Simulated scan of single mutants.
Amino acid sequence: MHPEFESDVRRSAALLRERAGGAPGPRIAVVLGSGWGGLAAEVEDAVDVPYGDLPAFPPIGVGGHAGRLLIGRIGPTPVMVLCGRKHAYETGDAAAMKGVIRTLAAAGVRTLVQTNAAGSLDPALGPGEVMLIADHLNLVQRSPLIGETGNERFVDMADAYDPLLRQQAQSAAQALGSPLREGVYAWMLGPQFETPAEIRMLQRLGADAVGMSTVPETILARHAGLKVLALSLITNLGCGLAEVALSHHQTLSVAAQAGDRAVALLCAILQALPPETA
């Protein structure tokens, strides 16, 4: 890896450890996608770190993504909460979040909890519902590990979304009275939405939801040795499944309406996870 990149990661991780009050810092990091921003208000004793202060972090250029990191607690659980992500569709770079994930790992994070907004491929999984990701389809067939060297680049993606973490999330959802469906998430590059033919293709391939993020970060996290848990907030039915024109404005609007319930569920899940998820 380029020496400048490694230097940026070390400096960013050192700053996060310093802002967290020294080692060990939080072992759980949460990436907030569209509709999940309300979690930021739930972080207690929050220390606010703008992405601009972290040299390994990219600038954020998508509405609904604030570009700041919070260090604090959700109930008793120490967390780092990342308000926003860089998407591959912004520059075409599947490794856009590499510096972020490497920084989190270097700062002591052991579990990455990802959230996103997604379109449903099943009318029974409607807008406002939350889906727990059990597996993914990398339809883009791009890897954020291009350029890595050595045998470690050949990452085993079995159980990419950790089975024990998913079980703990299901238990927390049941205790809250919020049934949580599991499904397969398909990554499409975007930024355009899918055509009806593409939606039919994804259905036949076994996908339950489709979106434009998450998969590159999961690959990076697994390469860095992190466990991953991921949740999709369903904001629409896929193109051709409903008579509604798709737009990012609609995504943000539906996400805002369903966000409170999704955030309450996420808070319950985070508090159910062991703080030391090594």
Results as ranks from 00 to 15, higher is better:
271 Q>V: 01
274 P>G: 03
273 L>C: 04
193 F>H: 12
183 G>N: 13
166 R>G: 06
226 L>P: 06
269 I>S: 04
234 I>Q: 02
181 R>H: 14
185 Y>W: 11
260 D>W: 02
249 H>S: 11
165 L>N: 04
219 I>P: 00
189 L>H: 03
252 L>G: 05
164 L>P: 00
268 A>D: 05
237 L>P: 00
178 S>R: 15
275 P>A: 02
230 A>H: 07
175 A>P: 02
239 C>H: 09
219 I>E: 08
164 L>M: 15
270 L>M: 05
233 L>T: 00
224 A>K: 09
177 G>C: 12
246 L>Q: 14
243 E>W: 00
205 L>D: 12
249 H>W: 02
178 S>Q: 13
164 L>I: 15
173 A>E: 08
268 A>W: 08
210 V>N: 05
251 T>C: 09
189 L>F: 02
272 A>L: 04
213 S>T: 08
207 A>C: 14
248 H>V: 01
174 Q>I: 11
217 E>Q: 03
189 L>N: 07
254 V>M: 14
215 V>W: 08
195 T>E: 12
212 M>V: 01
246 L>C: 12
264 A>P: 11
158 A>R: 13
244 V>F: 03
184 V>Q: 14
175 A>T: 06
242 A>V: 08
221 A>D: 09
234 I>D: 09
234 I>F: 01
209 A>G: 11
202 L>G: 05
248 H>G: 10
179 P>E: 13
241 L>K: 08
219 I>K: 10
203 Q>E: 15
190 G>R: 13
217 E>Y: 00
200 R>D: 11
214 T>E: 01
252 L>D: 08
260 D>Y: 01
170 Q>L: 13
206 G>Y: 09
185 Y>L: 09
156 D>S: 10
261 R>D: 06
244 V>R: 11
260 D>F: 02
271 Q>E: 14
229 L>R: 00
242 A>R: 03
245 A>V: 14
212 M>C: 07
161 Y>D: 11
206 G>R: 05
153 R>F: 07
222 R>Y: 08
176 L>G: 01
163 P>N: 12
257 Q>R: 15
227 K>E: 06
228 V>Q: 04
188 M>F: 12
261 R>Y: 03
236 N>T: 03
205 L>M: 14
251 T>R: 05
187 W>Q: 12
226 L>A: 05
256 A>N: 11
160 A>K: 07
214 T>I: 12
174 Q>N: 11
265 L>N: 06
250 Q>E: 15
211 G>I: 10
251 T>K: 04
166 R>V: 14
195 T>N: 04
266 L>M: 11
179 P>V: 13
208 D>Q: 10
235 T>F: 05
259 G>S: 15
260 D>G: 08
175 A>I: 02
187 W>G: 09
175 A>M: 08
230 A>M: 03
163 P>Q: 13
259 G>M: 09
207 A>H: 04
213 S>R: 03
225 G>P: 04
211 G>Y: 07
